[in-house]
């Protein structure tokens, strides 16, 4: 069982959350010409890191907020959690 510290609600079990994928993926900017390669990278291509991975989760059975979670994909250890709009250093 993973325990995720929701920045809005506190420590909750993974059963309350839904996974949202790699949080480092950025949508190409709207006001410029976007190449096929940029769309590819946004829609399909993923680094799928082994080790520290910043990812989105939604507290779907709680406050329903999207949050960012820094988790190790090899050990499942969770290091830090952030609000969705928080910048991660």
């Amino acid at each position: 069982m993973l325990y995720i510290n929701c920045p809005h609600c506190g420590m909750r079990s993974q059963n309350e959350f839904s996974y949202g994928g790699d949080a480092s993926v950025k949508r190409p900017e709207l006001n410029k010409e976007v190449s096929d390669q940029e769309w590819d990278d946004f829609v399909y291509n993923r680094k799928s890191l082994r080790g520290k991975h910043l990812e989105l989760w939604q507290h779907i059975s709680g406050c329903r907020q999207w949050i960012k979670v820094e988790r190790d994909t090899a050990t499942h250890e969770i290091f830090r959690t952030f609000k969705a709009d928080e910048e991660v250093a």
Partner: peptide
């Protein structure tokens, strides 16, 4: 299990 993982073991939920 529903999240990126390289651990060859899962969780109970």
């Amino acid at each position: 299990d529903g999240y990126n993982s390289y651990a060859q073991r899962g969780n109970l939920p």
